[in-house]
Write a protein that binds this DNA or RNA. Structure first.
Length: 570
RNA sequence: GUACCUGUAGCUCAGCGGAUAGAGCAUUUGCCUACGGAGCAAAGGGCCGGGGGUUCGAAUCCCUCCAGGUACGCCA
């Protein structure tokens, strides 16, 4: 279906050109023409402020320009009327006949409603939730999962082929600690005397459960093993858990990328060599003096020779360690190698969702790519601000390591997958959101999720009832649709713009707000425009049923875009 | 201290340089013989953190100050 802002912009552009050709407007460069729905309904369905933008260049007053544009505007089937208004706005009103016809267009598109060709078969990758499987998904981390998956859905709607990727490292210290923690829990489960370490230990109860399972499966066969088999076991169990949790939210990753493969393939060493060849690597016990007075030599770190990345030369606050003094890499080096690998896979668009606590790290990766002569521009990093969990008005602190956490599973249990998705989606990623656990659990009418889903339920209810009465919407004459129904169709036709803007700016929260607006346009109509009442003439009823058929299509599409269910009844 | 993010209604938050700044919740007042009232109608509530600037036009862009969050490790 058409994206109306673009359609209108095209008209305005040719009108300006026509006016210039006719000598009624002077020659000037035409800037990008923006068309959008105005705030007030009286101001029309779509408005354009171009006349004011070009007034100076044209040397005319804006209203005069607007009038000339209107005069030369080509006709189009979707335009009902056009008007030049006071300061210099051009206000468009959609043709009512054309609007009515959109009911059929919407139904015809169905589940693919407003699938755009913005991505035109381009490939996009969205990486999200990447973290080592050391514990269950916490509520805090789930925000990135929902935003990531929602961005993927918006990109798919925009026409991209999307891959969802999860990057993890099962070879580092965290996983070593996890294995060792399970080993201790295992010995504990066997009744052996153990001491729970103060640090480098995962205290979560899930490891006690894993240990019990392991004893049940293997008895004391592993009593003399080191951390490794325990790490393998914990990793496998954790991934099963993580995937099961994600499945409840209808989130599925296409690729689980293991950092280890970058070592196996030699990519890590190659990356180091490339950085070295580019002159960005040196060996020292501490970073080079950069000339800044604050770069005072750290008092003897006692750490020995490390290998450093001269990232400060590219603008970083300081140089970073690539290889520790024991010769093993820090996360920075494989991270750079990983991104090289991503770039080599030739995606047209790369999106990476990171929590604010990792917000600084991506810059180091960008410096790494730059050092290798790669422009990091195709990589879009979305920094998600942290979620502050609030219960009873007080903040709830979470830490996987200390074993204090609210799991996403618990939250879904207490509310629903739909509620969790909506509440975490309906905020700009930049906002530091307070997640009120009391409110989320409430399931009352304070919750917008039900308001939106109820619109779909009401449509479904109409057709259940209609089927019972033996009436249907076949062969409807849409001229019976009134002003109220057209109000909804106008709003529904904005969905395409929402998808375009959300996908282009990677701002999926827009669809959540749109969904609520759409529902708030719908509900009064549902109240007012009866389809099955005995007073309603059959041909009018048929047309209204057709309208509700289209409304249901739109709500189903919107809910699906948000990864939510479209219930038939509640 | 440096970098990033935030500051808009009592609360939680939208607002992609345009017209009189919006929504939900909460508060107050009306609507239930109809497709599920988890609904509808209406009201009150705002120096858009402060101050400068750019612009025909600023909540939006720039500078600065104030307040809060996060990160600044040879952890990831």
């Amino acid at each position: 279906m058409k994206l109306l802002p673009h359609e209108h912009a095209r008209l305005v552009e040719s009108a300006i050109q026509a006016a210039q050709a006719a000598g009624e407007l002077p020659a000037f460069a035409i800037p990008a023409i923006e068309i959008r729905p105005p705030k007030k309904a009286e101001q029309g369905d779509y408005a354009c402020a171009i006349a004011m933008q070009v007034a100076k260049a044209a040397g005319l007053n804006p209203y005069e320009i607007a009038e000339k544009i209107v005069k030369h505007l080509p006709t189009a089937e979707f335009v009902g009327s056009v008007e030049a208004i006071k300061p210099g706005f051009i206000n468009f009103r959609l043709s009512e006949d054309w609007l009515r016809a959109q009911v059929e267009a919407i139904i015809a598109e169905g589940e693919a409603l407003y699938t755009l060709d913005l991505g035109k078969g381009k490939r996009a990758q969205v990486e999200f939730l990447s973290a080592n499987p050391t514990g269950p998904i916490t509520v805090g981390r789930s925000r990135g999962a929902i935003v990531g998956d929602s961005i993927a859905r918006m990109l798919e709607a925009a026409g991209y082929t999307v891959e969802r990727e999860y990057y993890f490292n099962n070879a580092g210290k965290q996983m070593h600690d996890l294995g060792n923690s399970l080993r201790i829990r295992y010995l504990e489960a066997l009744g052996r005397p153990v001491e729970i370490p103060e640090s480098d230990f995962y205290k979560g109860e899930y490891l006690i459960d894993f240990a019990r399972d392991l004893v049940a499966e293997r008895g004391d066969a592993l009593a003399n093993e080191d951390w490794k088999p325990f790490k393998e076991y914990a990793e496998q169990k954790m991934f099963e858990w993580i995937k099961a949790t994600l499945k409840r939210l209808d989130i599925h990753h296409d690729v689980f990328f293991n950092e280890n493969s970058l070592y196996d393939s030699g990519a890590v060493n190659e990356t180091l060599a490339a950085l070295e060849a580019a002159g960005y690597v040196y060996r020292a016990t501490q970073p080079e003096a950069s000339g800044d007075e604050d770069n005072e030599p750290a008092e003897d770190s006692g750490k020995g020779m490390a290998t450093w990345f001269r990232s400060a030369r590219l603008g970083d606050a300081k140089d970073r360690v690539l290889l520790k003094s024991d010769g093993t890499p820090t996360y920075t080096l494989p991270d750079i190698a990983y991104h090289l690998n991503k770039f080599n896979r030739k995606f047209d668009l790369l999106v990476n969702i990171l929590g604010a606590d990792h917000g600084a790290q991506y810059k180091v990766v960008q410096y790494g790519l730059r050092a290798l002569g790669i422009d990091p521009a195709p990589l879009h990093v979305i920094i998600i601000q942290l979620v502050r969990m609030v219960r009873d008005g007080k903040e709830v602190k979470m830490s996987t390591r200390r074993g204090v956490y609210d799991t996403l599973d618990e939250l879904i249990d207490q509310t629903s997958a739909d509620v969790v998705r909506y509440m975490l989606l309906a905020r700009s990623p930049d906002s530091h959101l307070n997640f009120d656990l009391n409110l989320a659990v409430k399931q009352s009418n304070e919750n917008p999720v039900y308001y939106i889903q109820n619109a779909h339920v009401r449509c479904a209810g109409i057709f259940r009832e209609a089927a019972g009465r033996g009436t249907d919407d076949a062969g409807a004459d849409l001229s019976h649709l009134g002003e109220a129904e057209l109000r909804f169709i106008r709003k529904a036709l904005e969905l395409g713009d929402i998808i375009e803007v959300s996908a282009t700016n990677l701002e999926p929260h827009r669809i959540a707000f749109y969904a609520h607006e759409l529902a708030s346009v719908f509900h009064p109509i549902y109240d007012e425009v009866r389809a099955l009442h005995s007073d309603i003439a059959p041909e009018v009823a048929r047309a209204r049923l057709r309208f509700y058929r289209a409304a249901q299509v739109v709500f189903r599409r919107v809910l699906t875009l948000m990864g939510m269910s479209a219930p038939e009844r509640m």
